[in-house]
């Protein structure tokens, strides 16, 4: 049985303390009753109450969720198509440019992506608002989706698809009945990634939003520029709680399905033996 060495235990403890301490402090002080955020004055949930009565925040949250759901859904469809093209389409005219355009947004500074999209929208005279944010978010998150999905597509056995075609499936049926169920976990995690990226994005949204739409990160931004505020602490705590629940639930589900799969494999081996 391997144990933690003294050195490794120390570096892991310090490392994870560094990663988690700021968020733990934020959560604790969101229950501070004092307006002076850094001075503890007793437990209170009043900042959560004020947050729920703040219409500007609620509107911004609603805009953000609408944008995130739409853009991540479009991004998943386009990104999956792009992944299939990258892995399966073979050679075609302009392939290098295509794969370049898939990988470039991953490393592009957000200020440049935001600026260039804004200049495009103004150039073609599109009114800025929810629609332009959705277009912008779809564009950069489809690239993340296609990277996630293509890594799954590479590792899966193409002869399964060929078998389905031999057995009389149309290419679309083969995709729907064979390929899609196999790559489904990657497609789902691609969607989740696109959704989080959209929820999180400040810079690109600020460039492309225009005066008629404000997303939650933009709202948080304009408030935290003035300094630390108890309402933002409360909002952060809610967001951290949602994400932590989601990630832990997802990992439990995938762990359970892994256990079930192993059990099925073992049962199959027993039958064969």
């Amino acid at each position: 049985m391997k144990r933690f060495s003294w050195f490794n235990a120390t570096s892991l403890t310090l490392g994870f303390a560094f990663l988690y301490m700021p968020m733990v402090i934020l959560v604790i002080y969101s229950f501070n009753s004092s307006k002076l955020v850094t001075v503890w004055a007793g437990f209170s949930t009043k900042w959560y109450g004020e947050l729920l009565q703040n219409d500007a925040f609620l509107d911004a949250a609603w805009v953000t969720i609408k944008v995130a759901v739409t853009s991540s859904t479009f991004a998943t469809v386009l990104g999956t198509m792009a992944a299939i093209v990258l892995v399966r389409a073979g050679r075609f005219y302009g392939r290098t440019l295509f794969s370049g355009m898939i990988y470039a947004p991953l490393v592009m500074p957000e200020v440049i992506t935001g600026l260039s999209l804004l200049l495009l929208f103004i150039g073609i005279g599109l009114d800025r608002g929810v629609l332009t944010i959705v277009l912008a978010h779809t564009t950069f998150s489809m690239c993340y989706v296609s990277v996630v999905v293509s890594s799954r597509l590479v590792s899966f056995d193409q002869s399964l698809e060929e078998a389905a075609l031999d057995l009389g499936c149309s290419p679309f049926q083969a995709f729907r009945l064979v390929t899609l169920p196999i790559i489904a976990p990657a497609v789902i995690s691609g969607w989740l990634l696109a959704f989080t990226l959209s929820l999180d994005d400040l810079v690109i949204a600020a460039f492309t939003a225009g005066p008629s739409a404000t997303t939650l990160p933009m709202k948080i931004w304009s408030s935290v520029r003035l300094g630390v505020s108890p309402e933002i602490n409360a909002l952060s705590t809610i967001m951290i709680a949602i994400v932590a629940t989601g990630v832990i639930a997802a990992s439990l589900i995938s762990k359970r399905s892994a256990v079930r799969q192993r059990a099925e494999e073992q049962a199959a081996e027993r039958v064969e033996a």
């Binding site: 968020m23 934020l26 929820l199 990160p217 933002i232 952060s236 967001m239 994400v243």
Partner: peptide
């Protein structure tokens, strides 16, 4: 978790 919040913290 939100990048903005992690910086803000």
């Amino acid at each position: 978790t939100s990048f903005l919040i992690r910086v803000y913290s």
